[in-house]
């Protein structure tokens, strides 16, 4: 029953200057499941997510202590190649960030960086991942247009395809639907659920109903502390900590 966790976070603390953003977080993130991190805004959800692919770097007054193991490799080990870590994870941000280039180049960007030069192969990759993100039919005739001309919902799916194209093992979503209309949100949620067959998905959200719809595993953060975590049904049906209960009933937000 117990699977080997994909990511193990041990005693992680993050300081921005003197301010402590995360306090001694320890959690195992299960493989090939959707883990949803919930909590009120400013609780450190996004910081935790960005630690996972080292977008939070120990630089300029930022201090990171503790360990994060991905596939048993400590990612904050100075010997570890950071581009390698990041390639393992696709990131969906709050507002879709399309790169200033064509639709095609957005998807081909990652593979090209990592050494794929074969034109035919690149074409196949672009088509494959655009299809996986269910965007192919909408854009196949205008691949050379600037990506910024797409609608916001399309842009977010393009970002998904772009992230998938570097063949990650993990998908990170930082409130990935917060800029989208309800229909596009639903579309993205569906994609995430499909993806958990092959990927470990971690999503940050402050929308409780979204968490209930997609989560297999829940982590509740409050003021930089990990209050409670466990399988989704358990946490939603029977929260152990009074703060979790308060959050779930809407008393704190």
């Amino acid at each position: 029953m117990e699977q080997k966790p994909h990511i193990r976070i041990q005693d992680l603390s993050v300081f921005f200057g003197r301010q402590r953003a995360l306090k001694n977080i320890t959690i195992d993130i299960p493989d090939k499941k959707i883990t949803v991190i919930i909590g009120p805004s400013g609780c450190g959800k996004t910081t935790l997510l960005k630690c996972l692919n080292r977008l939070v770097e120990p630089l300029d007054g930022v201090k990171v202590s503790g360990k994060i193991f991905v596939d048993e490799e400590d990612i904050y080990d100075p010997k570890v190649e950071v581009t390698h870590i990041r390639k393992k994870m696709g990131l969906l941000s709050q507002k879709p960030q399309v790169l200033p280039m064509s639709i095609y180049d957005n998807v081909a960007y990652g593979p090209r960086l990592h050494g794929q030069k074969n034109k035919k192969k690149l074409g196949q990759i672009v088509e494959h991942y655009l299809q996986m993100a269910k965007l192919w039919e909408e854009v196949k005739d205008r691949l050379s247009e600037p990506a910024s001309r797409l609608s916001v919902g399309q842009q977010q799916r393009l970002c998904l395809a772009r992230g998938l194209a570097v063949e990650p093992e993990i998908i990170l979503g930082d409130e990935p639907t917060s800029a989208l209309d309800p229909q596009s949100s639903q579309n993205v949620e569906k994609r995430l659920i499909e993806l958990k067959n092959d990927y470990t998905v971690i999503v940050v959200t402050h929308i409780l109903r979204q968490a209930k719809r997609i989560a297999d595993y829940i982590a509740f953060l409050y003021m930089g502390e990990l209050i409670e975590h466990g399988p989704a049904e358990g946490v939603f049906a029977n929260p152990k900590d009074p703060r979790t209960r308060a959050y779930l009933t809407g008393e704190i937000s």
Binding site: E81, H84, G115, Q116, K121, Q124, I125, E167
Partner: peptide
Amino acid sequence: MRQSLAPRNLRRRK
């Protein structure tokens, strides 16, 4: 669709 993107070009990029 797995590509064989070995880190052989990593050195050049570094």
